[in-house]
């Protein structure tokens, strides 16, 4: 699809020296070309600030009676898990937008893929931090807790999704396949949830529900956790902006490479 337009473009611009083409590109999309637009820059700054504040607040939390110093992980683990849920939701939404004919655009396909990749990073971190928290609390690295198991299943589902995206196919076919897979993955989340919760009914309740906001100590924990949620959300958003841009540049580079190859073949054919 895109190949066709860029091929005709290439046919007209091919004889022009490379410098002119560069200038033309700069004029047509000046902001898009630069690595960090104002949105990405301010997001990045906010993310770094929030993350710094989270770490500072999280590490100075008082040790609790039941958990000792380990409760300081409350600033990290819920935030990371939250960001992985957002990533999954964005992937599903973007996939649905691609499948809906009136909003179909390669942008949504890229957003879905980018968000899924970031989601895999956050899900892996959820498992890692959960495991690290679980070792001193429960005495083992892994318990078959319903939420941890659900996260592990999600990780496997989205690793499969990313593997499917890497399978070579026409952009349209790949986007359709990926969008269907992403929606399927989200559709089974409630089923997975019920299956693993009924299977394993031991859990330590939701971390927020246990706490009492009236208590000063608990208030600090809630603040640290909420700050962690905010920081991880900002980090996710910043990563998404950049990862989507990488995906777009990759698509463009692929088109350009193809156009260049076609132009070269033509140039070879012309003198003969």
């Amino acid at each position: 699809m895109t190949t066709e337009t860029s091929t005709t473009d290439m046919a007209t611009t091919a004889p022009v020296p490379a410098g002119t083409a560069t200038a033309g590109a700069d004029v047509s999309e000046p902001v898009e070309r630069s690595t960090s637009g104002p949105l990405a820059l301010s997001l990045g700054l906010a993310a770094v600030l929030a993350l710094g504040a989270t770490v500072a607040l999280g590490l100075t939390l008082p040790a609790t009676v039941e958990q000792g110093a380990y409760s300081r992980l409350i600033a990290i683990h819920p935030g990371v898990a939250w960001a992985s849920y957002i990533a999954v939701a964005v992937t599903a939404l973007a996939s649905a937008l691609w499948l809906w004919p009136r909003t179909r655009s390669a942008r949504w396909d890229r957003t879905a893929g980018a968000s899924a990749e970031i989601g895999v990073v956050f899900t892996a971190l959820t498992l890692a931090t959960g495991s690290i928290w679980g070792r001193p609390t429960w005495g083992v690295w892994w318990v078959w807790d319903a939420r941890l198991t659900l996260s592990a299943l999600m990780l496997a589902l989205y690793l499969g999704y990313l593997a499917l995206r890497r399978v070579p196919a026409s952009p349209d076919a790949r986007a359709r396949r990926s969008a269907v897979t992403a929606l399927l993955a989200v559709a089974v989340v409630p089923l997975n949830h019920f299956a693993v919760t009924w299977w394993r009914t031991l859990h330590q309740g939701r971390s927020l529900a246990q706490l009492d906001p009236g208590n000063d100590v608990d208030g600090a924990f809630i603040a640290a956790m909420l700050l962690g949620l905010l920081a991880m959300t900002l980090v996710y958003a910043w990563l998404l902006v950049h990862r989507v841009r990488v995906a777009r540049l990759e698509d463009e580079a692929e088109d350009a490479m193809l156009a260049l190859a076609i132009a070269e073949r033509r140039r070879e054919a012309a003198p003969a």
Binding site: L153, A156, A163, V167, A169, L184, N192, W198
Partner: peptide, 21 residues
């Protein structure tokens, strides 16, 4: 897709985990 033999289990097995349970 090439590599389908390895892709199918990766896609299918986590999805049918609720069925197994």
């Amino acid at each position: 897709s090439r590599g389908r033999e390895t892709l199918l289990p990766l896609l299918l097995l986590p999805a049918v985990a609720p069925v197994l349970i």
